[in-house]
Amino acid sequence: MEYYILIDGKTEGPFSLEKLKEMPVTPQTKVWRQGMPEWIPAGEVGELNFLFGTPPPAPVENNSNHEAEPASVKIAPRTWLVESILITVLCCLPFGIVGIVYASKVSSLLKLGRYDEAMAASKEAGKWVKIGFFTGLIGIILYMITVYFFISVSDPSDLSYINV
């Protein structure tokens, strides 16, 4: 199906659907195709929704074994749980624990449907994960620099220490 579009009061086209993607069509742009009684805004033409980033509706799936998610499931904000766990276990305990606490808050708030608060808790969790990560990184680099200079003046066979 080919469409004419009205740009600055001038009729342009006809354009195929493919070609329309390259045109400056907004939902307010008037369009017309063969068979239409009059020009209407592109936003009201179902066939043109793909131009405006409107996601296609979820396909109806009768097969219950199919793994597709129901369209109603909202995308959850990141809980930062796995990052927090890794930070806890691999370098920076206190920041990681704070991260896990916030991750718990995110998941509880999501369960209660308090999406905005979950979003805020998610940001907070992310903040602590980043603080933990960079603290750990800087710590390890400083440690390695120190060890590098320290080793040269001490007995390298002294291994009486325990690692993380």
Partner: peptide, 29 residues
């Protein structure tokens, strides 16, 4: 499992929620 769910967070939001049930997260803490 968490890494897997995170990789598909936007495509399979239900999976992300299932592995982040409050009971699991609080339990881990």
């Amino acid at each position: 499992l968490l890494l897997w769910a995170e990789a598909f967070r936007t495509r399979r939001p239900g999976l992300y929620l299932r592995v982040h049930k409050p009971i699991y997260v609080w339990g881990y803490l």
